Amino acid sequence: MTCVAAIDCGTNTIRLLVADAVRDERTGAVRLHPLHRSSTIVRLGQGVDRTGRLDPEALARTLAVVREYAATCAGLDVPLNAEHARFVATSATRDAENRDEFVDGVRAALGIVPEVVSGEEEARLSFAGSLLGADDDGAPAAGPADADRAGQEPAKQRNEASRGPRLVVDLGGGSTELVLGVDAPQAAYSMNTGSVRITERYLADGVTPAAEQAARAEVRALLDRAADAVDLGAATRLVGLAGTISTVTAHALGLDAFDRDAIDGAELSIARVLASCDAIVHSTAAQRESWGYLLPGRRDVIAAGALVWSEVVSRVAADTAAAGHPLTTAVTSLSDILDGIAISLLPAGAQA
């Protein structure tokens, strides 16, 4: 057993997972036993799409949280070294010409060098993390055995082809990764779009018909490019990760507050997902404030995130239908890139 600390620093949110990681010596499978989880919306990517630089205030907000995370790790006796801790920075930091200021600040606060990973590495880590949220046949491992809970689709209605390749979609603030594979990625593509980027480009002044049309056109064009690298029609299961998708799922389930057990592994019909996306895209500020599962720091970008997710879901549904095996459901997993970062710290030969 190895105690590890994983930090995922995205465009909108920074998160920490401290866990005991165990590898089964017979199967090689890894399990995480979480000791601590933290998530803070810092909007590191504020303005990066427009300026190409990390904003000083956003940088200060983020580094303040990094110092808090360092204290948390110290309190849990996690060694802050390359063998036990990994800090991964994604889209916003990749795009920023002053990323060295961030790297130096993290090194000073945490004692380890943050990795500014490529979109391909981000996709690989997301896929690896998503596998912890499902059992061998692709059915959710977390929560009650039957999916007849909180309005989910019954387990008997699950796609019989779920043993085939899954398409994992990690929808972030600045980028959206699409990864196709069974036990490992077979193809991956990182789209330069996400909830913060679409908000700043098109929806900063609200969702008008013209702005919505322009935003959807951009996402569709990016999906056309993604389809050249990833066969979206080959997917037999669609798995969505990250804050936007968990919010859409909470809305679809009619939750009053964030409920990890209800959201993790939730399998909903495509029609239901798209209906919730549409409702969120066209929601009012008052409605968003009333949703207990939606954090204040996500309220201003959730419409854009839901718009991107609706376009991805619609495209995958259309491509799988054209391929002769239409997907009828989408699954939400709360095991994601953060979990993938954690298990990457466990040596391949480590024993349980």
Rank of each mutant, 00 (worst) to 15 (best):
A217G: 08
A217T: 11
E218R: 14
E218W: 04
E218P: 00
V219H: 09
V219C: 11
A221Q: 10
A221F: 01
L222K: 14
A227M: 02
A229E: 15
G233I: 13
G233S: 07
A234I: 06
A234N: 06
R237G: 13
R237C: 05
L241F: 05
L241D: 12
L241E: 10
L241A: 08
A242S: 14
A242G: 03
I245W: 07
S246D: 09
T249C: 15
T249H: 02
A250Y: 05
H251S: 14
H251A: 15
A252I: 09
A252G: 10
A257E: 11
R260C: 00
I263V: 15
G265S: 04
E267N: 03
L268V: 13
S269F: 06
R272D: 14
S276C: 06
A279S: 12
H282P: 01
H282M: 01
T284R: 01
A285W: 00
R288G: 06
W291N: 03
G292L: 10
Y293G: 02
Y293F: 15
Y293C: 05
L295P: 00
P296F: 03
P296Q: 08
G297Q: 10
G297H: 07
D300K: 13
D300Y: 11
D300C: 08
I302M: 05
A303R: 12
A304G: 12
A304H: 07
G305S: 09
L307Y: 05
S310G: 14
V313C: 11
V313T: 15
V316D: 02
V316R: 05
D319I: 01
T320W: 07
A321Y: 03
A322M: 04
A323T: 09
H325Q: 13
T332C: 12
T332G: 00
S333R: 06
S335I: 00
S335W: 11
D336M: 03
I337D: 04
A342K: 03
I343Q: 10
